[in-house]
Nucleic acid binder design. Structure first.
Lengths: 259, 259
DNA sequence: ACACTCAACACGTTATAACAAGTAGGACGA
DNA sequence: TCGTCCTACTTGTTATAACGTGTTGAGTGT
């Protein structure tokens, strides 16, 4: 192994394999050479090749499977979660929406609903007091039979208690906006705060992704005027999802557009 | 080390430390016990404690520094990139916008602009032919002197060539929307496709984040009616940024709201 | 008082060794 | 033909050992 600039061997090997992945020499789903092969190829010990592959795994380029080998991970996420003006005039918009419906998007999910009390965090987001009663609903969404999205939502019971839409699911109307419409509350806007982080063990297990892959965590709140109506924590694997936001740009603004 | 269910020792140790982080026994910026300490505490070899800490590092809970130790990573991102109706009636909206301006947001950036031709990918996004001339501008944004956001934008020269706003920077108007307004093109909406992934080596270096931390990659395109006007690739460290999208919800829609 | 040196300590890199556990395919028997 | 078993191959886990490199603070000399 040529020792270039004293740069650690495992990083050089990682660089080498990475460029093979990026330039297409190694394609998605291809198996990497086994650890034994790499040891022989580069003339290093096993720990070096393991470190090298671990770097690539941590970058999300490679997945490892005990007993089978290490594989180049498919890079492109397939599904798009669209938020915004679905009826945009943009012609490219329709393929997305169409594919979302076409690719087996039978609304497939399971949920668990229960009454509970608001934690401080949730209370802040809903503009209520910690300890106030809320309806908590956990969803697990599936796509092609695979778990694809996790969501936990909270609604203040002060709003829905005693109404026909107290239960988020099971009634004749579903979806926050129509449900609230049904009791005379008209959602005016939604805020989604998006962060990226590595999957927690629970999420990795539930979403069936390798530990450490990046996920997108969305903190979503629906508002009627300035009043928070519902808030939810949503987690999707960034492997499988692109979040697509489509926003109108109001004409004649003095405000500099955020870059 | 009590061998619980044959679960690997390094995972048990990782679980142990993780719960200490999550329950607050170990707080942000605290130093973890050194590898030697952990070896003694749990009665295992160094490779086991290194594997354990590596798990936490890969989850983004811990950062390691050679010569100093391993530290609990501060979890909450500080900055918010807001897209959407800044003049929302929501009272909580103002603190965000205010803090964005207050926290030393002197518009601090450097850029490089050059004429080039569109790659296939960019041409598709701009609705032009590959090889058509475009203006390419790379930005590096700083916050508190630290690089915080990378962006590369493309505009078809067919639109701006020969106009006063051919150069994205340096003129009297800046920002895509005002610049295009100035030549009679009125941006109607913007699409942002957000994905999460691990930082590439170049990005990790440029953004000064440890390799492997998740970043958010945004593919943004501005449209005037259905015509793409500008497209950009934006990368931010998810350590430091929350993306906040504020969208109006139109009244009386039959369309089920995307969950 | 200040700057320099150096040792102690932290994590980083690599080698060798052994056994565990999951996978796949071929051999073999019913 | 079909299912079982076994074996070879793969990654997973752990131990021991040694040396490299970055950090820090105590001690020392000026």
């Amino acid at each position: 192994m040529a020792d270039f600039r004293g740069r650690p061997a495992y990083l050089q090997i990682a660089d080498d394999i990475r460029s093979q992945i990026l330039d297409g020499t190694l394609q998605a789903e291809d198996r990497l050479p086994s650890e034994a092969d790499l040891m022989a190829d580069y003339g290093v010990s096993r720990i070096v090749v393991r470190n090298a592959v671990e770097v690539l795994r941590s970058e999300g380029l490679v997945v490892k499977q005990q007993g089978r080998g290490s594989f180049v991970r498919a890079q492109r996420p397939q599904r798009t979660r669209v938020v915004g003006d679905l009826y945009s005039e943009r012609p490219e918009a329709s393929p997305f929406a169409a594919s979302a419906r076409a690719s087996g998007q039978v609304p497939e999910w399971e949920y668990q609903t229960r009454r509970t009390t608001a934690s401080k965090t949730i209370a802040d987001r809903l503009g209520i007091q910690a300890g106030d009663p809320v309806m908590r609903t956990s969803y697990r969404f599936f796509a092609d039979g695979e778990p694809a999205m996790l969501s936990t939502s909270f609604e203040p019971l002060a709003i829905t208690e005693g109404t026909p839409v107290e239960q988020p699911e099971g009634g004749s109307v579903t979806g926050v906006v129509p449900r609230m419409d049904a009791i005379g509350i008209h959602i005016t806007h939604v805020v989604e705060d998006v962060t990226g982080r590595s999957a927690r063990p629970y999420e990795a297990e539930t979403l069936k992704v390798p530990v450490g892959v990046p996920v997108l965590a969305i903190e979503r709140t629906y508002y009627a005027k300035s009043r928070p109506i519902e808030t939810a924590d949503i987690v999707v694997s960034s492997d499988r999802y692109v979040l697509s936001y489509r926003l109108p740009v109001p004409p004649r603004t003095d405000q500099p557009t955020p870059r």
